[in-house]
Design a protein around this nucleic acid. Structure first.
Lengths: 361, 361
DNA sequence: ACCCAAACTACAATCGATTGCAATCAACTT
DNA sequence: AAGTTGATTGCAATCGATTGTAGTTTGGGT
């Protein structure tokens, strides 16, 4: 007694293939296409999926009808059925400091690159910031079935929690520093090597009192500090604790911290900053204290964000290859989703020597 | 003959409310909660939705059980049923020029702010870049049922197409310039007023040959040009066509265009750039041509991106309030989704006078 | 005690697609 | 001409939640 209850949800003329802009947002569904083609939904589904179970002629006809109706598959329903989402979440753990938002250009550039990589693979990018409770938020994200995988940008100070989470959740790749007890996959730069190269360069320029600017609580900064002290040791120098300044990553905070430092101590001849944003803040602070860069104090940053080269003076810095980093993260994530066993990756860095650290006279 | 086929997908101990990190990603579903609570799925659904049809005691018990199982509603299924998505798409039409990615910090900052606004309202942000065919891509996005609304960042050169699309698709808000024949809602800055203020400032400093840098094909740039010529006219000056340089918005392209210009014409005493990125490229190009800013040439930009103030020389610019822009867009979008009739908004700008346009000695 | 309304709760259809398995049909074998 | 095979296609269950409607229980009135 099943009557043909299926009706074309949109009373559009089947034969014509007009642009049909008017249909946008309307509800042409697979059943409609099936009716128009005189086949079952199954066949439409298979035809559109390119299954070889469907006769080529039938498929062509279905495809044409679908196109003429400007039909596209409802991803909600599809995802529900396939228990997947076609979406990868990019998560930024916001530090307690800059509760505002994603401030650092480095991360924004990273985000742009990730969006490219993911859309190349036909995935969407779900952007989410999380306050503090990383595992809880991530767990929700996963349970809600919104995402096929997670890219966590920065470890913040949550290494332990991330590690715990990674025990039970596989499709996760983290940008940051490899930790000795990493239970999760990381992609990051060779922070130690990059920092050491930068400091060697400063030493080669004749600088001896080189300040280190950065919050060593963060694993990446800790690694950069390690490179810093390693280079000093190679040169037979010891780390001077009074030259270590824990500055935050945001512009204002960094500027304030550095200004405060310079108020009481100006006996430095170089600065190694843990990010370009910090380096630029340092240059401004130095300037306000009457110290010229590079004449009085040489400055080297880290990241090579777009403004670094454009800055005046052009900023010497340790370049991280953001595009490569993004594509590596995405690559590893998908391989891990496929079940492959993959290892963390450490990307090489390049020392970019520019005006801010020119060799002394 | 329906037997209880429903089984707890996860054999976890119902009574305990351990952290249950191990359950992340597993498949506790509503039926499981219903079984544990000894009620039907309907009741669980209603309880969790806060419906007052459910006894308070029952609700509490259900909530507790759900919590102890660290259950959350599957959004895929929920969205399918409700035909909604809980997601707003932010779409960047990529210009033909910078096919690479979202390069301009202004847009990235905007993105960060939008992410904040949306997550405050419990919505997710789906990031999508589209190549060129705006309406087609948007239409797909909508038909796929992935999104409840669209925020289009920048009109690119697609005003006509957007207008057409807007005929049939309502939940759309565009960042850009209001056009005379706008069929869609825009949020944007007072480009005319801002530009006029900048140029008046340059005129007041005694400059007369003020170059305009920007691609006037883009509606926003066209409006800024309008402000530029308006200010010149007020001062009894005519626009000199040889001072109008159509530069692209990306750093390299802008630099190249400006360098080329300076190679043949250096009789300018000021520059009004249609964005800070262009302004910074101009300063570099001027520098390479032996022209000092602001001594030889004054420069004013547009946007006031974070680096503007930090640049050396600090960049004078027309400030756009990105945070306000983002919150306005989101606000308008949701009001429009609710069916309210809303109008386009033009936000005030602020002229920030800094070192790059200091008054001539 | 008995009846009725109020207050809850369960049933079953529904959202739109996917897919294992059964059914159909034409062509080919002998 | 009957049997077999392979190529196609359709049926119906399923993914996990929501909700209109019908059914059950409880409490109050008399």
């Amino acid at each position: 007694m099943r009557t043909k209850t299926t009706k074309l949800s949109v009373p559009s003329k089947p034969g014509l293939d007009l642009p049909m802009l008017g249909d946008i947002g309307s509800q042409v569904k697979m059943a409609d296409i099936a009716m128009l083609a005189g086949v079952s939904e199954s066949t439409v589904s298979r035809a559109l999926a390119g299954s070889k179970l469907v006769n080529a002629v039938t498929r062509k006809r279905i495809e044409d009808i679908a196109a003429s109706q400007s039909y596209s598959i409802d991803q909600r329903a599809r995802n529900l059925r396939l228990s997947r989402t076609g979406t990868i979440s990019v998560v930024f753990p916001l530090s307690h400091e800059s509760e505002q938002g994603i401030a650092d250009p480095f991360f924004l550039e990273m985000l742009g690159n990730l969006a490219d990589e993911l859309s190349n693979r036909g995935y969407d990018l779900l952007l989410r910031k999380i306050r503090s409770d990383v595992p809880r938020m991530l767990a929700d994200l996963l349970r809600e079935g919104r995402t096929d995988g997670v890219l966590l940008i920065g470890q913040s100070t949550q290494h332990g929690l991330i590690n715990e989470l990674a025990q039970s959740y596989r499709p996760l790749v983290v940008w940051g520093a490899r930790q000795p007890d990493n239970g999760y996959i990381t992609v990051g730069s060779d922070n130690i090597g990059g920092a050491a190269a930068a400091v060697r360069h400063l030493l080669a320029c004749g600088h001896r009192r080189i300040a280190f600017l950065g919050n060593r609580q963060l694993p990446e900064v800790a690694a950069r500090y390690q490179g810093y002290s390693q280079a000093l040791n190679e040169a037979g120098l010891a780390v001077a604790p009074d030259l270590l300044l824990p500055v935050p990553f945001d512009r204002q905070g960094a500027f304030a911290a550095i200004s405060g430092f310079l108020d009481r101590d100006r006996a430095i001849d170089a600065v190694f900053a843990s990010s370009d944003i910090v380096a630029i803040a340092a240059i401004r602070a130095l300037d306000q204290h009457g110290l010229k860069v590079p004449h009085d104090v040489a400055v080297v940053g880290f990241d090579d964000i777009m403004v670094a080269a454009a800055y005046t003076p052009a900023l010497s810095t340790v370049r991280q290859d953001i595009a490569l980093g993004a594509s590596t993260m995405v690559d590893l994530l998908f391989r891990r989703i496929e079940g492959e066993v993959v290892a963390s990756v450490e990307l090489p860095t390049t020392l970019m020597i520019r005006a801010s650290s020119e060799r002394l006279g």
